[in-house]
Design a protein around this nucleic acid. Structure first.
Length: 499
RNA sequence: GGCCCUGUGGUCAAGUGGUUAAGACACCGCUCUUUCAAGGCGGUAACAGGGGUUCGACUCCCCUCAGGGUCACCA
C-alpha cells in the first residue's frame, strides 16, 4: 500500500463521548500513527434536531483530555475541510443532483405518515419493512401534481434488487448481503440535509479516507454505503468494524449503567493514561501479551489484524487496577497537580492555599498515592494533612482507644516527640519504640492509637512518614486532643451507663 | 420477525489440527509488615451443546442454542 493512510473518527454531537466512541477513536488514532498516516476528526451534525453545540465542545474536550489528538478537524483545520458536515451541504447537494441527472436516484414524495403506515402494514403481514419503490418511476405529470400539493420530496437511491453486495472487512472477513434485503433508501431528506449513509460516503471520499474504522453497529450500513460508492463512481475504501463495548449486563452501553462517558470517569478521578490503556486492551492485545501499555507502545504494536471479533464487556475493576498503577507510577508533580482540583472541589482547601502549600501537598501525595485507586480517593486520603481531625473512625476507636492506657500512651508519645533533639521520622520511630519498651507494651500498641489520633483512621501510610510530614507540633497537638477526647467520651459512656 | 456478527474461566484475553489450554483483573490462601496497600508465592475457575471431516479437533464444516447489532426523512 503506497497510498498514505487517512482515517477518521466521525461522531455525531448528540451526547457526550462515551467509552465506546473513545475506543473507536483510539483505534483509528493507533492505526493512523502506526502507519504514519493522518487522523481526522469530522463532526456529523446533519441531524438538526438532535445535534448540540455543547456536545461538540464536550467531545472535543474529552478527546483532548484523553490525548486523542487529531491532525485535521475542528480547531485544527486542514486541506479537506470544513470538518463539520453542516458546513458541507453544497457538496452533498451537488452529488445528489448528479445521481439524479444520471438516473441513479429519484425524488420520492411519500410523506413520513404514509411511510410509517406502510411499514406497519408490512410488519403486520410478517414481512420485512422496506420501501417498495413507489416513486421510483414517477411521470412528470405525477411529480407536478405532488409539487402542486406542496409536498417536499426526499431523494432516494436506486438500489439494484438482484445480486449481492460484498463487504470485505479487515476484521470480519468477507460478509455477504443479498441486495434483496436492501431498499431504495433516502440519501437527501426533505429539508435538504443528507442522511448519514450518504454524507458519510461523500465525505469519506472527499476527504481521501483510506480505511473506515468504526463500530460494529455500522456493519449493516456498509452494503448501503457501498451502493452509494458505486453509484457515485467512487473507489471503495477498506473497512474494519471493531467489536462493540457492552455494559456488564451484556446490553448496549447507556446512562443507566453508571459511568459510561469519558467525563464521568474523569470526574471520578480516573487518569487518561489508565483509560487509554484499558481501552487499548478491550478488543485488542499486543503480540507479547504485555498489559501495561503506553500510547507510544500501543502505536508501535497496533494492527487491525489483531483486533478480535467479539464484543467486550467493560470491567471497571480492571480499569481501576490500571488507574492505581498509574497513580503510583506517573510523575509526582503531575499526580499532585491532578489531585489538587479534587481537594478544591471537596472544599478541603482553596485554590489559593493549594498554590501556597504545593510542596507540602506534594509530599502528602508522595506517601499516600500507593494506596489510592482514584484521584478522588487520593484527595480524601490526604485530607487530614490539610485540616484537623474532628472524627475518629468508629471501629478504630473500639480497637485502639478503649484500652485503659490509650490516653496515657498518647500523652507520653506526644511528650516523647517534643523532647526529641532532632525531629525526623527515624528519630520519631526510635522514640516511639523506646517509649513502648519502657512502658512494657508492643510498639504496635502505641502506633495504632497514634495513627487514629492524628489521621482519624486506622489505615494509611507508614506512621512515621505521616508524623514527619505533619510536623512535631501538630502531631503532638492531635495526640493530646485525642487523649482528651478519650477521657471525655469515657466519662460520657460511664455517665450514660449509670442512668 | 428478516438480515448480519459473535460464542475460551465471573471479566478482559492468548491460541489458527497434535499444548499439562498462556497471561491479566477479580476472588481465596500464605508471606512481608505498625495498619492498609504494593510486592512475592500459591490456589479456585474455561473451549455453549450436538453432529460431522480427520489418525487426531478449542481450532475446519453443518445444525441447535445463547448473546449482540441492524432493519428511521438518527447517526
Amino acid at each position: 500500500m503506497t497510498e498514505k493512510v487517512r482515517v477518521r473518527f466521525a461522531p455525531s454531537p448528540t451526547g457526550s463521548l462515551h467509552i465506546g466512541g473513545a475506543r473507536t477513536a483510539l483505534f483509528n488514532l493507533l492505526f493512523a500513527r502506526h502507519n504514519g498516516g493522518v487522523f481526522i476528526l469530522r463532526i456529523e451534525d446533519t441531524d438538526t434536531e438532535r445535534s448540540r453545540e455543547e456536545s461538540v465542545a464536550q467531545i472535543i474536550r474529552s478527546m483532548k483530555w484523553l490525548g486523542l489528538d487529531w491532525d485535521e478537524g475542528p480547531d485544527k483545520g486542514g486541506d479537506y475541510g470544513p470538518y463539520f458536515q453542516s458546513q458541507r451541504l453544497e457538496l452533498y447537494r451537488k452529488e445528489a443532483e448528479r445521481l439524479l441527472a444520471e438516473g441513479k436516484a429519484y425524488y420520492c414524495y411519500c410523506t413520513p405518515e404514509e411511510l410509517a403506515a406502510r411499514r406497519e402494514a408490512m410488519l403486520k403481514a410478517g414481512k420485512a419493512p422496506r420501501y417498495e419503490g413507489i416513486c421510483r418511476d414517477l411521470s412528470e405529470e405525477e411529480r407536478r401534481k405532488y409539487e402542486a400539493e406542496g409536498r417536499k420530496p426526499v431523494i432516494r437511491l436506486k438500489v439494484p434488487q438482484e445480486g449481492k453486495t460484498v463487504v470485505e472487512d479487515i476484521i470480519r472477513g468477507t460478509v455477504v448481503f443479498e441486495n434483496s434485503v436492501l431498499d431504495d433508501f433516502i440519501i437527501m431528506k426533505s429539508n435538504g440535509m443528507p442522511t448519514y449513509n450518504f454524507a458519510c460516503v461523500v465525505d469519506d471520499h472527499a476527504m481521501g479516507i483510506t480505511h473506515v474504522i468504526r463500530a460494529e453497529e455500522h456493519l449493516s450500513n456498509t452494503p448501503k454505503q457501498i451502493q452509494v460508492y458505486k453509484a457515485l463512481g467512487y473507489e471503495i475504501p477498506e473497512f474494519a468494524h471493531v467489536p462493540m463495548i457492552l455494559a456488564p449486563d451484556r446490553s448496549k452501553l447507556s446512562k443507566r449503567h453508571g459511568a459510561t462517558s469519558v467525563e464521568e470517569f474523569r470526574d471520578q478521578g480516573y487518569l487518561p493514561q489508565a483509560i487509554i490503556n484499558y481501552l487499548t486492551l478491550l478488543g485488542w492485545s499486543p503480540p507479547d501479551g504485555e498489559e501495561i501499555l503506553s500510547m507510544e507502545k500501543a502505536i508501535r504494536e497496533f494492527s487491525l489484524e489483531r483486533v478480535n471479533k467479539t464484543a467486550a464487556i467493560y470491567d471497571v475493576k480492571k480499569l481501576t487496577w490500571l488507574n492505581s498503577h498509574y497513580l503510583r507510577e506517573l510523575d509526582l508533580d503531575y499526580i499532585t497537580s491532578e489531585t489538587i482540583p479534587f481537594l478544591v472541589k471537596k472544599g478541603i482547601i482553596s485554590e489559593e492555599e493549594s498554590r501556597q502549600r504545593y510542596e507540602y501537598i506534594k509530599k502528602a501525595v508522595e506517601i499516600s498515592r500507593d494506596r489510592a485507586k482514584t484521584l478522588d480517593e487520593l484527595a480524601d486520603s490526604i485530607a487530614f494533612f490539610l485540616k484537623d481531625v474532628d472524627e475518629y473512625e468508629e471501629k478504630g476507636v473500639r480497637k485502639h482507644f478503649e484500652k485503659e492506657n490509650a490516653a496515657e500512651l498518647l500523652l507520653k508519645g506526644a511528650e516523647a516527640l517534643e523532647e526529641l533533639e532532632r525531629f525526623d521520622k527515624e528519630q520519631a520511630e526510635i522514640a516511639f519504640r523506646s517509649l513502648a519498651d519502657a512502658m512494657g507494651v508492643k510498639a504496635a500498641e502505641l502506633i495504632h492509637p497514634t495513627r487514629l489520633a492524628i489521621t482519624g483512621r486506622t489505615v494509611g501510610p507508614g506512621l512515621f512518614d505521616i508524623i514527619e510530614l505533619l510536623g512535631r507540633e501538630e502531631t503532638a497537638r492531635r495526640m493530646r486532643k485525642a487523649a482528651r477526647w478519650i477521657k471525655e467520651s469515657g466519662n460520657l459512656t460511664k455517665a450514660g451507663g449509670e442512668n
